[in-house]
Design a protein around this nucleic acid. Structure first.
Lengths: 228, 228
DNA sequence: CAGATAGTTCGTTGTAGATCGAAGCATAAA
DNA sequence: TTTATGCTTCGATCTACAACGAACTATCTG
């Protein structure tokens, strides 16, 4: 028999649990109470949900003193959530397009470990325009020019290649319905922006706030043309 | 706000609906009654499930006389189901390994439109060994040698490239936990085997039955070494 | 030590939704 | 036309499970 798809999907299918998972799409490990707060439920309820999610293989947990830190199990899980977001948004797009619906989230947000939103899409476009990457169907490929470009930025390309994860990957943006850059390189770019203090993650949200000067430097570094 | 992931996941999360979806992973469009039968429920219940799945964007429906043919909406949906299968199997592997658990299904089955199971994995391995494809992280790439190989088999490679879907893709096999070939080329290979009457899909199952001579020709054509 | 905080377990309640019988509509065959 | 088949809608039932209050354990703070 096929493995039972409904077990995992049922876990994600609960509204409260999906809130928790989306919070964890921020990439950071969160404690049980943080997750309870994030999804507006009591600590007891959160506890049962979290053990189900862990039991079901969607989360991993690390105990630290009296805290328990939960985290998406791996990129495989993050990818599923991403894909579900896309299908979901294709359906609800009409209702989402109307209303204010958090423009900041649409502009720049974290997608587990890389930059998404209109800024992420603009980055992807300009990397393409500069010839640093080429789009190979679903996955993006780093060109020789791209290798040189990122090496000059201090990226150890060959080192990253040794990882189990793809170097470049294109990931469909649910708000833009266009590709942005995922994969280790996508992760590096975002981490680099954090490291250089160009941007930081807003607390309790997946929004990424760029400072004025940080955004300027980011756009300049990657030759992105991006209005507001 | 994020699109609500729980709506779609909740649809898949019901045991009966997931049975229907798995039946549709066979790639063929099925009628409402067939799907009701497949998932052991009454026609009324099936009807409500099917309208929910359609409303939710997972299925598309085509009316033909007094029949209604349902089908997975597109490859995006099939891919999600595939990924859920993988996560699910990683969890339930222990319980699945024990018991007879349908060895035919593990040997050769259809995965929406391409060949999966141990034979699919063996095919992938030998295409790699022959240097027809190389593994580029998640996606497989056709080499020049591979282009020549498949052109000789009568495949219009450049024609296929114009499609929106990737030519080659590697897809993790839930029973083998190793890659097999998906993408348009994977689809072509399976269709070709059907066309040449090497194999056919077993009714009401995702099992693919190769005839003795068909299997021999298949193995020879793709230089696959495969025991039993 | 006491008190505070993080997390869990148990029992109860309330509700969403899966299921089916019955009845109805639409299309096809006779 | 009548009869059969495929699918849908309605209403009633029943069950799974999310939620929380209360009571518990474990860890940190003073």
């Amino acid at each position: 028999m096929d493995p039972d798809i409904s077990l995992v999907a049922g876990l994600i299918g609960d509204k409260t649990r999906s809130k928790m998972l989306m919070a964890l799409m921020g990439g950071k490990a969160l404690t049980a109470t943080e997750l309870a707060c994030e999804s507006d439920i009591s600590a007891q309820t959160a506890s049962t949900h979290l053990s189900k999610l862990t039991e079901g293989g969607l989360l991993v947990v690390r105990k630290q003193g009296r805290h328990k830190y939960f985290q998406l199990r791996d990129h495989e899980v993050a990818e599923i959530l991403e894909k579900l977001l896309n299908i979901g948004s294709a359906q609800t797009q009409r209702s989402i397009d109307t209303g204010p619906s958090n423009p900041d989230l649409r502009k720049a947000r974290i997608c587990y470990d890389h930059l998404a939103g209109s800024l992420g899409v603009a980055l992807y476009d300009s990397l393409m325009a500069e010839g640093a990457i080429i789009e190979e169907f679903q996955s993006a490929e780093l060109t020789d020019k791209g290798k040189e470009f990122f090496s000059n930025l201090g990226v150890d390309i060959e080192g990253l290649r040794n990882s189990r994860r793809p170097l470049c990957k294109s990931c469909l943006d649910w708000s833009e319905r266009r590709n942005h850059l995922a994969g280790i390189l996508g992760q590096w770019i975002l981490e680099d922006a954090f490291r250089k203090k160009w941007a930081r993650k807003r607390l309790d949200s997946r929004v990424i706030d760029f400072s004025n000067s940080g955004l300027k430097k980011f756009l300049h570094t990657y030759r992105v043309s991006f209005k507001i």
